[in-house]
Design a protein around this nucleic acid. Structure first.
Length: 190
DNA sequence: AAACCGATTAACT
DNA sequence: GTTAATCGGTTTC
């Protein structure tokens, strides 16, 4: 498998990238322990023009500043006061677009994921669970995704067995007319 | 300085 | 299906 480089992430076509990230492998090395999983669900947030984006209207705050970095950095933030959600920043610097990684299929380090999850059973099934299983937290906000802590690799899944489905995003009812945009992508068994 | 609220989850009934 | 948990960022006073 090949590590995705800067040129992959600076692509301004975030919707395309959100779909293209399905099937790629998200890898982390936290406290020296390698864990990874196949990305199986994503959501695109298109920034300035997207009412669902934290950076709608180019809103620049301490929190959203991560999204203004060049594509290939991480945007991690605290949601509902208890969950860390991991996003891949895309496009050129100053263009606050990002892709929320909502779910993975665990590959490596499954025993470590179970330890991180404590007595909870599920290793997958939501964006905050992904962060927990992979050891991602606020300290990883703004990190470069071509480094050796969090990175992505090309992957392969059986395209005969799965298809990519496209739906509205989850939990963005506040976004008015943009709430129904089909910016969510998931891998589904055929 | 204080109030308000969310790109959710898990444990209930 | 319902609901409590929980806190940083943002807005409002």
């Amino acid at each position: 498998m090949t590590k995705l480089s800067r040129s992959f992430f600076v692509n301004p076509k975030t919707l395309f990238l959100a779909e293209d990230l399905i099937g790629k492998v998200l890898c982390t090395r936290v406290n020296g322990i390698f864990t990874s999983g196949i990305i199986s669900e994503t959501e695109a947030y298109l920034g300035a023009t997207d009412q669902a984006s934290h950076a709608f209207g180019n809103k620049l705050t301490k929190r959203t500043s991560s999204m203004f970095l060049e594509g290939g950095h991480a945007y991690v933030y605290l949601c509902y006061g208890l969950h860390y959600l991991f996003n891949v920043v895309t496009g050129p610097a100053g263009n606050p677009q990002a892709i929320l990684i909502r779910d993975i299929i665990p590959l490596d380090g499954i025993e470590e994921m179970k330890l991180r999850r404590g007595n909870l059973k599920r290793l997958t099934g939501g964006p905050a669970i992904v962060s927990n299983s992979l050891g991602i937290n606020l300290s990883h906000d703004k990190i470069n995704l071509t480094g050796n802590t969090i990175w992505l690799e090309t992957g392969n899944y059986d395209k005969k067995m799965f298809q990519i489905v496209n739906t509205a995003r989850i939990g963005v009812n506040y976004a008015g007319s943009d709430a129904i945009l089909p910016y969510r992508f998931l891998l589904q068994a055929r």
